[in-house]
Design a protein around this nucleic acid. Structure first.
Lengths: 161, 161
DNA sequence: TGATTTTAGTGGTATATGCCACTATATGTG
DNA sequence: CACATATAGTGGCATATACCACTAAAATCA
């Protein structure tokens, strides 16, 4: 019976993995943005800047791969940050097609400033959700984000019956 | 040591729950959109239309709540579907502020058409990820999407130390 | 080396999504 | 009933994100 109810009691259709992830993403987005609030930057921007810091001056392409994001989507997403002087693109001398993404000093400062706020949000998440469960969840989500999973999904036979 | 590595081996920063969910959402979005491809509609639109079908002519507000989506965001998201004649808004006679969301006959047809494609994607997901794991995951994500979790997150004390 | 193919970015266009300001309508209060 | 407040939607603006077409530059191959 449990597998049959495509409709849940509260009337929300919970059966689609894609939809479920997006709903959760919307909620977390609001929660984390709230936590970042005063800084004028969004949670997504913090994550992006943090990934930039951790990668050693990645190319736009490498950064897009790390973020599991479309190359051109990343380009668009970077624009506001570049406009506001937090990020800069530096042509790679070895490969003149490529550009390296880097935080400006201002960007570094802002990222550090946000780190504390992020940590608070993270702590509240762990407290509400459970630390171990959170670690497990992130691992699961990382798997869903991996090229291996995408590969596996695309290869999967549709031989239902 | 495990708690200390904010940077993973492959250089992707995996510590942020928010970022992890979004990465997964991007990947699943691509996978499900791919599956919907030929229909000209996105996975998000399918999910939205399906939720509309399952709710009994919900108001825009009720639908927004079900989708864990901002009211105005939902309004924007509905526009292309209304423009293309798949969805219509019908003023509620009892409460003249409210509007009821409904699929047009064309919308119903398209939703049914997509249902098969969605099921294939769903099956491939289950096969790649594991059926039980998938059910568990959806439950977890539903919890993260719940007002209870949001409440709990917002209330959580930031007394780290 | 010259032609072909692949890779990196950019710009256009479209959907997804949020916040804020504003309008209309309903609700509650004195 | 008149006024204050709360609720439902809309429209503007901004970011998030994708696909496609196009340019430039590197890599491959004949």
């Amino acid at each position: 019976m449990a597998q049959n109810d495509l409709q849940m009691d509260d009337g929300v259709w919970l059966y689609c993995n894609n939809s479920a992830v997006r709903r959760a993403a919307r909620q977390l987005g609001q929660l984390y943005d709230e936590a970042m609030g005063k800084t004028g930057l969004k949670g997504t921007q913090f994550s992006l800047m943090t990934q930039i810091v951790r990668s050693q001056e990645p190319t736009v392409k490498a950064l897009a791969d790390a973020m599991v994001m479309d190359l051109s989507a990343l380009g668009h997403t970077l624009k506001p940050l570049i406009r506001d002087g937090l990020v800069e693109l530096i042509p790679d001398p070895k490969d003149r097609r490529a550009k390296r993404v880097k935080l400006t000093p201002e960007g570094v400062a802002r990222q550090k400033e946000m780190l504390g706020l992020w940590q608070e949000a993270q702590d509240r998440f762990d407290k509400s959700f459970g630390l171990e469960r959170a670690q497990e969840l992130r691992q699961t989500l990382a798997f869903l984000s991996s090229p291996e999973f995408a590969e596996s999904f695309r290869r999967a036979e549709e031989n239902d019956a």
